[in-house]
């Protein structure tokens, strides 16, 4: 198994509305895979299916070698997930959050203790240790949430708009963390609508209205569309869609 994620003709319908329309893509192990699209393009729907939070209407989905229809609980063991909504408990301290999620994923007590030490040191949280998460600045919260999503050392990490609302410096630091994990062989699947972040990915897909309109490495896409940056490609694709609709 060399592919972290394999998706064939994935479709998700809510009543008559098709949120995700026949997606086809594969994600290699160790790849940083970017999932781009405007709000409502179907990114979150797709990522929820990959994480086992939602069942596909049709098509094949394999994540970490497991089938999304029958083995969604096995998928959950092997992935980490950080949603665009805040996923830590506000009224628990940093250590309590790490302990809780570590425990849920079956880490041993000693492993949990070493994770707490590791994260506090890595994120320079010494001054916040023992404080409730609600008191942390947003940037630190997001970095901590990423670490917690990684606490059980999963093969694939899904990040759904992890940097929305975060300042540019913290975003940069956040991407350093992503690269570090990728360098350790982890597959990163990240959705974003910051086009500069797209440049950091090994490959990107651009979704427009539930469909994939482009899929390749940023440099190849720029060549193909003859542009300087991803932002222009994104605008071209979105406009094309709009004019064809009109």
């Amino acid at each position: 198994m060399n592919k972290a994620v394999v998706v064939r003709d994935l479709t998700k319908k809510f009543g008559t509305f098709t949120a995700v329309n026949k997606l086809n893509f594969e994600v290699d192990k160790g790849e940083v895979f970017g999932f781009l699209g405007a709000n409502g393009a179907g990114k979150t729907t797709a990522i929820k299916i990959l994480c086992g939070l939602s069942k596909p209407s049709s098509g094949q989905v394999t994540v970490a070698g497991f089938d999304a229809y029958k083995q969604s609980e096995l998928i959950k063991k092997n992935i980490g997930y950080m949603s665009q909504r805040f996923s830590l408990y506000d009224d628990l301290t940093i250590a309590e959050n790490i302990r809780f999620y570590g425990g849920i994923y079956g880490l041993k007590r000693v492993e949990i203790q070493s994770k707490i030490k590791e994260y506090v040191k890595k994120l320079n949280l010494e001054e916040f240790e023992g404080r409730k998460v609600i008191d942390l600045p947003l940037g630190i919260k997001q970095k901590l949430a990423f670490s917690v999503a990684n606490v059980h050392n999963p093969a694939i990490i899904f990040l759904d708009e992890p940097t929305s609302g975060v300042d540019p410096i913290t975003r940069r630091q956040f991407w350093d963390m992503i690269y570090l994990e990728a360098a350790h062989g982890k597959t990163i699947f990240v959705t974003t609508h910051y086009m500069d972040e797209a440049e950091y990915c090994d490959r990107i897909t651009i979704m427009v209205d539930g469909k994939i309109e482009a899929l390749d490495s940023p440099s190849k896409l720029k060549k193909e569309f003859n542009t300087q940056n991803i932002s222009e490609i994104f605008l071209k694709l979105s406009r094309k869609q709009n004019t064809s609709q009109n």
């Binding site: 994480c51 086992g52 939070l53 609980e73 096995l74 959950k76 063991k77 992935i79 997930y81 949603s83 909504r85 805040f86 996923s87 830590l88 408990y89 506000d90 999620y101 849920i104 994923y105 079956g106």
Partner: peptide, 12 residues
């Protein structure tokens, strides 16, 4: 608050 989603994605 959205934490249920995070719980649902764990193997709990």
């Amino acid at each position: 608050i959205g934490t249920i989603e995070q719980l649902n994605v764990t193997p709990i």
